[in-house]
Design a protein around this nucleic acid. Sequence first.
DNA 1: CTGTTAGCGCCTTCAA
DNA 2: TTGAAGGCGCTAACAG
Lengths: 357, 357
Amino acid sequence: MSTTPQTAPRRATITDVAREAGTGKTSISRYLNGEMSVLSPELRARIEAAIARLDYQPNQMARGLKRGRNRLIGMLLADLTNPYTVEVLQGVEAACHALGLMPLICHAANEVEMERRYLQLLTTYRVEGVIVNALGVREATLRPVVGNGIPAVLVDRLVDGLVADMVGLDNRAAAELGTRHLLDSGFDDIWFAVQPFEQVSSRQLREAAFREAINARAGQATRGAQGGHGGARGHTLVLNLADTAEVERSIVELDRAIDAAASRRLALFAANAPVALCLALHLKARYGADWQSRVALLSIDDPDWAELTGVTTIRQPTYEIGYRAVEFLHERIEGVQTAARDCLLPGELIVRASTSR
Amino acid sequence: MSTTPQTAPRRATITDVAREAGTGKTSISRYLNGEMSVLSPELRARIEAAIARLDYQPNQMARGLKRGRNRLIGMLLADLTNPYTVEVLQGVEAACHALGLMPLICHAANEVEMERRYLQLLTTYRVEGVIVNALGVREATLRPVVGNGIPAVLVDRLVDGLVADMVGLDNRAAAELGTRHLLDSGFDDIWFAVQPFEQVSSRQLREAAFREAINARAGQATRGAQGGHGGARGHTLVLNLADTAEVERSIVELDRAIDAAASRRLALFAANAPVALCLALHLKARYGADWQSRVALLSIDDPDWAELTGVTTIRQPTYEIGYRAVEFLHERIEGVQTAARDCLLPGELIVRASTSR
DNA sequence: CTGTTAGCGCCTTCAA
DNA sequence: TTGAAGGCGCTAACAG
C-alpha cells in the first residue's frame, strides 16, 4: 500500500458519456437538464448506466460558460471574528443551498483595500450576484460590481448614492428598545459605546436613536431632579477597536465617570458585541471579577458569553437576515425589477442579570 | 434618478478588446498572461488602452475551462459556530490570498449528509483541491474527491484508510500538558469532558492522552494517599452536544461528583471550546454566578469568554493550522509527490484564575 | 424522439 | 513579433 496520495485519472466528459452510451452529446445534455419527456425510456436507461459506469459529473464551469450563469454568488464579509457575521453566514448558506446557489465567501478582515480587491476578484469569476457586509463600501467601491450589472444586496448598512436592496436589523427600534429598557430599569446615566460611525449607517442610526431616546426622556419633566440634573443623561463613547492604544485613551473618560459615580451604578450600552467584549474585558481588568457591580452592561448582539456572564442583550435575527439577503439577491438575479427594498427586522430584548439586579 | 437597481450592459470579452485594439485575440491573451517579451511596446500600449477603455476583465471560468485549472479550492467545515473553525478559516483565507487561490467555503453545520453533498458539489466545480475539517469524513465520503485525483488536506483529524496530508494540533501533547497542569496545581480528581469520540481521531487522542497522563501520575506513589485513594483520579465524561436531552442525562453524573466533593474543588478538563461552554453554562445555571468556586475549568481552545471569565486554556495555533493546510494543498496541486505528511503544531497553555487560585 | 452544428471566452499550437 | 485555427466541456438552435 502506497503512502503517496495518488494522482488522478482524467475525468469523464459529456463526450465520453455519449460514446459510452452510444448516442450523441445532445441527449446526454438533455438528460442532465431533466428534459426527460424528450427521451425514450430505453435511451434514458442507457444514459443512466453510462453515467454510473463512468462516474460522470458535469462540469459546472463549462455549463456556466455556455449558459452565462454559473450559480455562484459572492459574499463579502468585513469580519468573521464577529459572531454576528458567522450567524448571518449560516442563513446565507442555508438559503443558497435551498436555491441552488453556491456562495463564494470572502473575508476582508476589516481591511478596506482587501474588500476592494475581493469585489474585483468576484467579478472575475462572474458571480451572478453579491451580498455585501463590509466597512468601506461606498458607491465607488461597488462600481466594479454594480456598474457591470451584477446585482448586490447590502447587509446591515446603506451606501449612499447606491440603489440596492438592503436587509438588516431595525437599528432605530433596537437602540430605542435598549435605551428605554435601561431607563425603565432605573438607570439615568447611560453611556453608549460604539465604533467610529461616520462611514457606517447602522452605527449612525443606533447612536442617533440612542440620543433621541435619552432626550425624549430627559424632556419629560415627570421624574424628580436627580443629582442636580433633571431626567436622564446620555453620553456617546467612540471606541476605535482597530487601534488598541486609541481605545485605551478613549476609555479613560468612562473610567473617570465610573469612579465618580461611586455607589450609583452606571449603565453601558454597547452598540455591538465586539464593543461589548472590549468593554467587559477592560472593566474586568480594572475592577476585577466583580466589575458588574459597578456597571450595568447591555449590548446589541447576543454572543455566547452574554448568557454566561448574565449580560442583557438585544439579539438580532441574524439567520433570517442572511436568508433574506439571499432571497432578495436571487430575485434580482432572476430579473425582478421592482424598486430597491429595505428589509428591517426587529431585534429581541433578552433581559439578564446585568439589568435586572 | 431611478430607484430601480439598473441592469447590466454585457461584459467585454477578449474579442471585444482585440477589435478595440485593432489586433488579434492571441496578443491580448499574451498580454493577460504577462508574456510581455513577445509584444512590441507599441502593441502593448494599444492593448493596455483598449482594456482600460472597455474596463475589461478576463473571465476566470473560461480560462479555467481551457487550461484545466481554475484556482478554486474547496474548504469543507463541520461547524462555523466553533471559534476554532473561524480562526482556522482566517489562516486559510490569508494563505489563499498569498498563493492566488480562491476558497469555496462550505459549511456543513454538523450534518454528515450535507458534508457528502458539498464534497460532491465541489467536485462539480472542478476545484483543484480540498481542505477538509468535517465530522463524518471516512474514506468513502472522500472518494468522490480523492478518487478523482483531487488532492485533499485534512485538518485536525485523520481518516483511516485514507492517505493524505494532515495538519492540526499536537493532541497528545496538548492533553498531557493540560492534565499535568491540573495535577501540578493540586487537583487530583479530574473530569475530562469530550464529545463522542469513536469517529474523530483528535478527540480520541486527547482522551487517551488524558488517561495516560492520569495513570502515569497515579502510578507514581510519591504523593501521599488522599481520601483513601493513592494518587490522581480521572474520569471521562462524554457529552453529545447534538442532543440536549442526552447532555442533561450525562451531566448528572458530574453534578453528583461535584456535590459529593463538598469543600474540595474538582477539576474539569474540556476537550474543546463548545464542550467548555456547555459545561460552564450548565454549572452557572446550577451553582450560580459563583460556580467557579466549586469547579476548576480548563479547556482546549481559547474562546473570547475564557479571558473574561478567567478560565485557563490551551490555545491552538489555529491561524497557522489553516495557513499550513493551504500550503500543503498548494504543493500537492503543483504536483509534489512526497509521502503523506502529518503536521502537528503545539498548543500553548494560558494560565488564568480558574487554575491558579 | 434524436443527432448535427455552432459557439460561450479563453489559451495554445502552428505558421507567417 | 503577430495572427489564424482549433478545442476545453457544455448547451441551444436547427434539422431529421
